[in-house]
Structure formats: structure tokens, C-alpha cells
């Protein structure tokens, strides 16, 4: 017990020195808890995903490309880094992965479009073709409000609920972006009326 450790033990200590890190990753619309146990330099170890342990080894292949073995299965993966995380390409699928470890309550920084269906906003950069309502007009849920066009395709933006048009923030030929609220509607029968 009192025997001092020699140099062998010291080098072994270095080799075994591992990196244990916890991540919260948002992949598509899902959040996963990841615990990595990988040895730098050796390029292998294990990764825990939502409590399931996977054996991992990998090697970099050229730019942005890795050959990864996960539990004995090989994957060729391409990785592109962009503003909101990384894009991972594997077997025909491109997945966007974002680190949300330090984001408040694990929520993504930007609200995905699906979460805001109650707004009249174009799904992509487009041009307004027609505005079919006026301020003060009463609209039914599902009624067409604005028609936009992009890449030769027309799309009608519909009223998310019945109500009175408070404001029309656009006009024909205006270039509009996702997130721009084109028509504001005062919801009808919202509970307290």
C-alpha cells in the first residue's frame, strides 16, 4: 500500500486520462442527453445517449469527413459547421445538431417555425402576389389572407383563427421573410369577450 507508484503508473495514468463530458444536444426536434467518454488521441471510447452506452471509434478522412464505428457498425459522415450548430450528413440524411447544454431550460435559441403556426408568415423568402383582406375585415379560420410566391410556386397563407384583421403589414410585390408577420388578427372569442 505504501509502495510508491513508479513511472509506468504515471504514463498509464496519462493514457487512461479520459474526457468525461455532458452535453444536451438538439437533433431535429428532439433533445438528447449525451455523456461522452472518449480518449483524446486514441479516437475511441464510449458515448452514452439517453442512458444507452455505445462503443465508438473513429478516424478523420479528409476535410469535414469521418469514418465512425458505432457498436461495430460503420458510418461515413460529413460534418458542416454553420451558425446554429452542425449539419451532419449520414446515409442520405442531413441532420442539424445544436448544442443546447447552456441554453435556458434546454430550449433552442431560435423558435422553430412549427411552434408559431398562429402567425401569418411565409415559410421561406418569397414575394407577395395578392393581399386578399383589409384592415377591419372579419376573417374565418382557414380563410386565405395573402398569396406569396417563391420558386414558381404559389402558397396561400391562411387565417390561423377567426377574428378581425388588425393590421396588414405588407403589399403586392413586397419581398417577405419567414418571421415577418404579414397580417395581424385580433382573435375572436378568446375567452374573456
Amino acid at each position: 500500500m505504501a509502495e510508491p507508484r513508479g513511472m509506468d503508473a504515471v504514463t498509464e495514468g496519462i493514457a487512461k486520462r479520459k474526457t468525461l463530458l455532458k452535453y444536451l444536444l438538439k437533433i431535429g426536434d428532439q433533445i438528447k442527453t449525451i455523456q461522452a467518454d472518449l480518449t483524446p488521441g486514441q479516437r475511441k471510447g464510449s458515448v452514452d445517449i439517453d442512458g444507452v452506452r455505445l462503443d465508438v471509434s473513429f478516424c478523420p478522412v479528409g476535410n469535414n469527413r469521418y469514418h465512425i464505428m458505432i457498436d461495430g457498425r460503420p458510418y461515413n459522415v460529413w460534418i458542416n459547421t454553420h451558425d446554429h450548430g452542425k449539419q451532419i450528413f449520414v446515409n442520405g440524411y442531413t441532420l442539424t445538431v445544436e448544442d443546447v447544454t447552456h441554453a435556458k431550460s434546454g430550449r433552442p435559441r431560435r423558435k422553430p417555425l412549427e411552434e408559431t403556426p398562429s402567425n401569418v408568415t411565409p415559410p421561406m423568402p418569397s414575394v407577395v402576389v395578392r393581399v386578399m383582406v383589409r384592415e377591419g375585415e372579419r376573417v374565418e379560420k382557414g380563410q386565405g389572407l395573402v398569396v406569396v410566391t417563391a420558386m414558381k410556386m404559389e402558397t396561400t397563407l391562411k387565417a390561423p383563427y377567426s377574428g378581425i384583421v388588425q393590421k396588414v403589414n405588407t403589399q403586392v410585390n413586397a419581398k417577405v421573410m419567414p418571421g415577418d408577420i404579414l397580417v395581424e388578427i385580433q382573435k375572436e372569442d378568446s375567452g374573456h369577450d
Partner: peptide
Amino acid sequence: KDYLDVAAVAYLIAELESSKWPQ
């Protein structure tokens, strides 16, 4: 959702390789 785990692992590897690993 077949490749969510692969994507997660790939993300970590890219972080590790880009020297952003803390130590």
C-alpha cells in the same frame, strides 16, 4: 429517426477534433 444517435456521436467527434475539447 434512425440516425439521431449517429448524428449526436458525429457532433461530439467534430467538437473533439476541432480542439474545442476543454483540456
